[in-house]
Design a protein around this nucleic acid. Structure first.
Lengths: 200, 200
DNA sequence: CACTATACGGAGCAACGCTCCGGTTACGCA
DNA sequence: TGCGTAACCGGAGCGTTGCTCCGTATAGTG
């Protein structure tokens, strides 16, 4: 039987026990460190907290973005999956969009520096950017399209642009906002501006 | 009557000739480097371009922000000074606000990374933040107040917040924008959202 | 011309991202 | 059970950056 390669690796590729253990330790350590020092925390710190060397961290997560994605994957998936529910529960499509956007802002605002990292040109963060766009833009688009369909908002703005703008509005904002700036309010205002006819 | 265009040297202690020469060289070099490598360009590069040592750059501009401010001071002052003219020329106060904001966006978008640096938590950039706010917020406030006075826009947004939001919307945007994202459009939409009654 | 306050330059330190390779270990197989 | 090897681990080390510090050079003055 020449083509039994599947027998070698029943599920995907089973990794060694120590490798799996380290990956989990890294994930836990990263989540903790991100909370206190933001997603820009030094790699050495995360490695130390997980009790592993730096080589290990880079083997499991070649780019910093891979680690960030792994840590926040669940939340991002949940947000994306929630879009249809928002559409069903809200009174109007544009209300659903506004509410979903609010959740998106909630997510970004509770992660130190995530919004900033998202817009980074740095190649190491490229994958992060790609992942977020890949998951969230379609979800946003479904709400946006529904609102356009209902003629509630102008149609010359696409989901990617809107997400980009909303993400930018969250940059530099922390959960314990002590300044007058309020990302929720600003995103709300942006969406209010969406309820207009296209520019003259 | 001393026109304030050259507010330097007469009262304070006169510096040595070589010091003044180096300062000018630094300013010119920084302007050139900022154009090509953005405001985050390595200090060494600027020093090298100016033909001076690193000690010199830090002596003249203790924090990076001081250098950035010095380079862009004229443009910022001009923008601030232009606000009354916009108010006089536009058909409505809110139109003046929109037009002035557009100029603000123009300014940010043509400076690599300036918008990003502006929101930086980094202590070295604190002075930059302070300077921009100090100069531009009052100008913006005059337009904003006029629009509020005319009952054209909601009154629960202050100038600082609006500037902050507009600045954020410009982050990561370059003049030669190849993406679909358009800072002008987004800021315009934000201001459109301002023409609403406060949230329900 | 000599003297001193002023300014200059770059070596040096610390922090960081990332790579690379010798040593270690888990795991299948006999 | 014992063994061989592929997979994995750790951290020394390189390159880059921000910023400081101090011995040296010089502009301006009497």
């Amino acid at each position: 039987m020449p083509e039994v390669d599947a027998a070698l690796t029943p599920p995907p590729a089973r990794k060694r026990a120590d490798a799996r253990r380290n990956e989990q330790a890294l994930l836990a350590a990263a989540a903790a460190v991100f909370l206190t020092h933001g997603v820009d925390a030094p790699v050495r710190v995360i490695a130390a907290k997980a009790g592993v060397g730096m080589g290990t961290i880079y083997r499991h997560f070649p780019a910093r973005a891979d680690l960030v994605v792994a840590v926040y994957r669940h939340q991002v998936e949940a947000l994306a999956a929630a879009a249809p529910r928002f559409l069903a529960d809200a009174t109007t499509p544009s209300a659903a969009l506004a509410q979903w956007m609010d959740k998106f802002v909630d997510f970004l605002v509770t992660k130190h520096g995530l919004a900033g990292a998202l817009r980074s040109e740095d190649s190491g963060f490229q994958a992060l950017h790609a992942y977020f766009l890949d998951r969230l833009v379609p979800a946003c688009a479904s709400l946006l399209d529904a609102a356009v369909e209902a003629s509630e908002i102008r149609r010359d703005i696409d989901a990617l642009t809107l997400m980009h703008a909303a993400g930018n509005l969250c940059i530099g904002v922390e959960a314990g906002g002590e300044t007058s700036y309020n990302a929720h309010k600003m995103v709300g205002m942006l969406i209010a501006g969406l309820r207009q006819s296209p520019p003259a």
